[in-house]
Nucleic acid binder design. Sequence first.
RNA 1: GUGGGUGUAGCUCAGUUGGUUAGAGCGCAGGAUUGUGGCUCCUGAGGCCGUGGGUUCAAUUCCCAUCACUCACCCCA
Length: 423
Amino acid sequence: MNLRAPRGTRDILPPASEVWDFVESRIKEIYKKRNFKEIRTPLFEDTELFVRGVGGTTDIVEKEMYTFNDKGGRSITLRPEGTAPVVRAYLEHKLFGQSQPFKLYYFGPMFRYERPQAGRYRQHYQTGVEVIGGDTPFIDAEVITLGIDILREFKMEEWVLHLNSIGCRECRPVYIQELKNFFKKETVCRECSDRIDRNPLRVLDCKNEECAEIKQKAPSIIDFLCPACSEHFSEVQELLGEREIPFSVDPTLVRGLDYYTRTAFEIKTSELGAQDTILGGGRYDGLAEELGGPRAPGIGFGMGLDRFILMLEKKQTELSGSKPLDVYLVAIGDKTVQKESWKRLNLLRQAGFSADMDLLMRSPKNQMKAANRAGARFTVIIGANELEQGVIQLKDMDEGTQVEVEIDQLINALKKKKTGEVN
RNA sequence: GUGGGUGUAGCUCAGUUGGUUAGAGCGCAGGAUUGUGGCUCCUGAGGCCGUGGGUUCAAUUCCCAUCACUCACCCCA
């Protein structure tokens, strides 16, 4: 038996899991403040959804999908990204019939078959948003701003927003033709020469040094945008300026998924390794139609939580993940005392305190040790003597002081101590 | 998919120029006059030295393969 999580996957254990919980709930609050609603879609979908949605010639579909046949012979794929499933759900449930635009957020794992690396996992976690049913530049700016707001909420300043527009159905084909003509005259790396016909935009994405020089001379998409796309793009930039969000226009940013149109963006940080994109997204005005629905333009982003948290840890940002325990109960005596303590434990919890006790029934000394390790603010000591007199010992673990309290007054005494601390 | 590095206790790492019972620190468990934490001291548990094969009288040490981790490429979150 191989007792190891599969390659590229990992367990998130305490105390790390407390950091995750903390980060996720803070982000969720940000979404809620902006009137986004949660959507949960299945972890797997029909393979066809991604082939049609993401695009058959993309890296994701060509080599990164976890695809298998289920017992009914259906081809199933573990979702490699969040947008296609959300748009599928939007169409399936005819959400275009409701008040538009539809603003959704999600949290959850995504799956891609790749070689693991720092900040790259086969099962990784993303949070993201999708705004569907509108194509004004305000929506673009609102979505991008939201991404920045998350970074700022966590006091992260070491990032660069890369922005581009990759045009629409009207203007992009013209540009692509131009690009093909250009590259066919140049000598590019072998991979790129393969790409020229299949997915020419991706040649711009090549990091090969030989190609880099050639790329600089290549025609820029921005010069080929149709009037509508061009206006959209400059308005988005204007609105970002309005919010004082710095960005860098990057004509080589094309993104690896086919569904993108117009606005494309990525936020990179210098604080990770080679896997430095923590947030990426773009507009997808044609996706709904591509999937067989009505026109429903949308825009969204995905943010990598693994990388985000890695970045927070590298920055040693204080993450007050775990909250110390209010009370640890120490039982000293036989079963009668233990049972009484266990009963009191429940009463403490019902009164709203976080409380725990030693369920191994160890020696008083060891129980105190455990209380200390749990970070308990107070210990409540119940022994046979106390039980007889109807009292308990209440010990302040920071001060090291201890007072006797009538057992019925315990909750009140604790409440007083707690509010005393707040004031 | 390609290339480099690594793989000894729960964790961080020593070590064996091939040779009997493989070590430390931290952590964990228990204890230091019978009912009290954090400091100190004592004791203890825990390792088929990643897995499989080869060379050898002998391998945890050498060689090969494999798996995993890690860094980079590719690409992305």
